[in-house]
């Protein structure tokens, strides 16, 4: 069985091409689907196994990043989204897609065992620096997270490219609760720490944490581990020639395709595709 991925686009989403490509590189088929095709009923979300909300600037980030697209989805695709989540199908939101999922309330979502209630519980707000920045960061994953997307992943370098990536919640108890369930799936870490020992609740200085996120949070998952969102761009390191230091790598591994040049980010997409395959 070849999993089918719906990659949303339209209204300023702009990482749709590469998001489609990375899913295809790990054995899925992916369609770029205009949001309005789903809203109009021209295409059905239920025909897909995975939903990806890519990065971009939907509606120019006006009135807060992800809010206007989040509203369109929250009001016009509510049932389709709820059914998709209830059916246990994976969803990923990257960068602007993460912002959309947070503002629709799909992330972090309600308690385990509850259908999505579309209540916003956290937010992503302006970076402390006040600046949009494209910069490479080091990420570390919670090995105990229920997140199906990040299984077996420890540490990864990839770029952040955002102006509103600071994850906040109203109280530290909210964060404690998510942490207890290992939903704080991925954090910014200091690259000089040893792999596996980098995650900390203490706020890291800029630019190790590029935005001042509470507890250095880079991404979270819902209680089921199926819905996952993160600000950094794992698809941007699908191949190692996209790494800023690749000119230090031995060039001799030039087999066809990615070969030895597969980037660290691709595993994340492979995890979800494999998950769907095993479930079916």
């Amino acid at each position: 069985m070849t999993p089918r991925v719906a990659v949303l686009f339209g209204f300023g989403i702009n990482c749709d091409h590469e998001t489609k490509a990375v899913f295809e590189l790990v054995g899925a088929t992916a369609d770029r689907l205009h949001v309005n095709r789903l809203i109009s009923g021209d295409q059905q979300l239920e025909d897909y196994d995975i939903l990806a909300v890519p990065g971009g600037f939907s509606f120019g980030d006006h009135l807060g990043s992800g809010r206007l697209l989040g509203n369109r989805m929250r009001f016009a695709m509510r049932d389709a989204l709820r059914n998709f989540v209830d059916a246990g199908k994976p969803i990923i939101g990257i960068c602007n897609g993460f912002q959309v999922l947070v503002k629709t309330g799909l992330l972090p979502g309600p308690e385990a065992g509850t259908s999505p209630d579309f209540l916003q519980r956290g937010s992503l707000t302006l970076n402390d620096s006040g600046r949009y920045e494209d910069r490479w960061v080091t990420l570390e994953f919670d090995p105990e997270s229920p997140c199906i997307w990040t299984k077996g992943m420890t540490r990864m370098e990839c770029p952040v490219r955002h102006g509103e990536g600071k994850y906040v919640m109203p109280s530290s108890e909210d964060l404690d609760r998510l942490d207890a369930q290992h939903q704080l799936t991925v954090r910014y870490v200091d690259p000089t720490t040893s792999p596996g020992a980098g995650r900390t609740d203490e706020n890291l200085p800029y630019p190790l944490s590029p935005n001042g996120s509470m507890r250095n949070i880079a991404g979270i998952c819902d209680a089921t581990g199926l819905v996952f969102g993160l600000m950094p761009h794992p698809e941007a390191i699908y191949a190692r020639w996209l790494h800023p230091m690749h000119t230090r790598q031995d060039i001799n591994d030039s087999t066809d395709g990615l070969g030895g040049w597969e980037g660290e980010g691709l595993q994340l997409f492979r995890n979800a595709v494999e998950y769907v395959k095993q479930r079916s």
């Binding site: 590469e18 494209d134 761009h233």
Partner: peptide
Amino acid sequence: RQYDHEVIAQTAIKPFVG
């Protein structure tokens, strides 16, 4: 750095190196 220089996941040599 305030320009997105790697959207589309294609930029192999970026404005910043090293």
